[in-house]
Design a protein around this nucleic acid. Structure first.
Length: 247
DNA sequence: CCAGACGTTGTT
DNA sequence: GTCTGG
DNA sequence: CCAGACGTTGTT
DNA sequence: GTCTGG
């Protein structure tokens, strides 16, 4: 699922919606309607990693999309690892070597203006028909994620993040079998607090009744397929082509 | 013991 | 680094 | 996630 | 078919 998304808000807007009172990046990211794996992205995380901060202040940060296996030592392998670890299954995230440490200690929210989903071959839509999925209330989608820090051989510190997924529900199920985990605002502080490391409690936070009810999916053109394309037009609703094979 | 994986999605 | 498979 | 490459030697 | 790059 979520392998491409849009982030077209400025920092001020994100800091408002996510109540960021801690640190924030020195410079903002360019508006991007076609964010691809390994691209720079915004995340919201606890300002104080130790969890000693009782005010649970939140920070805005920029990281690279896709976690790096913590045992890796080679820059090239790290890059390859990132492309393969952009999504973490909520069902198994607590036991996967690539994700488990980050799940226990460094969770985050990944804000998305909207994300793209391509229809699967066996559904009711033309295979690869792209959809743009946004929040019904016009706010940013608060996607549950994890982040981690990796030190390259040359000493460079690379921070990365991955999106957590779950089984698709409701209407989204007709497009694709997976969807992101959306984190309700009343759970943000608990989710982000590094002191919370109980696997069962954390997994419970990812379970929401009718998570699909907060979003709406609209078909868009194939232009989004190529990462070379970028712009508001990628998100404009486009009529569906012939939905089924004619016989 | 050592070697090899370590991830997700979707699928003929 | 740590787990799984052989 | 999709698109595009998938190769070598020698060199303007 | 499978990997890399974006």
């Amino acid at each position: 699922m979520c392998g491409r998304y849009a982030q077209t808000a400025d920092m001020r807007e994100l800091m408002e919606q996510f109540e960021v009172s801690g640190t924030s990046p020195q410079s903002s990211l360019p508006l991007n309607w076609n964010i691809a794996p390994t691209n720079p992205i915004y995340i919201i995380r606890a300002d104080d990693r130790t969890g000693k901060d009782t005010q649970s202040k939140k920070a805005l940060a920029t990281v690279s999309w896709g976690l790096i296996g913590p045992w890796l030592t080679d820059m090239h392998e790290a890059r390859a690892s990132q492309s393969r670890a952009i999504n973490a299954r909520s069902e198994s995230i607590h036991e996967k070597p690539t994700f488990r440490n980050a799940f226990r200690s460094t969770r985050c929210l990944i804000p998305a203006t909207g994300y793209y989903e391509w229809a699967t071959a066996l559904g009711q839509y033309r295979p690869k028909q792209p959809f743009y999925i946004t929040s019904r209330n016009g706010l940013q989608l608060p996607i549950a994620g994890i982040w981690s820090s990796w030190t390259a051989p040359n000493g460079e510190i690379i921070e990365t993040a991955s999106i957590i997924t779950q089984e698709a529900q409701g209407e989204l199920e007709t497009i694709h079998s997976r969807m992101p985990v959306f984190m309700p605002s009343d759970r943000w502080d608990t989710w982000l607090n590094p002191r919370n490391s109980d696997v069962n409690e954390l997994k419970a936070l990812m379970v929401v009744e009718h998570p699909e009810s907060i979003v709406i999916a609209r078909p868009v053109s194939d232009a989004v397929n190529s990462v070379a394309n970028n712009g508001k037009e990628l998100t404009i609703e486009t009529p569906l082509g012939e939905p089924e094979t004619l016989f």
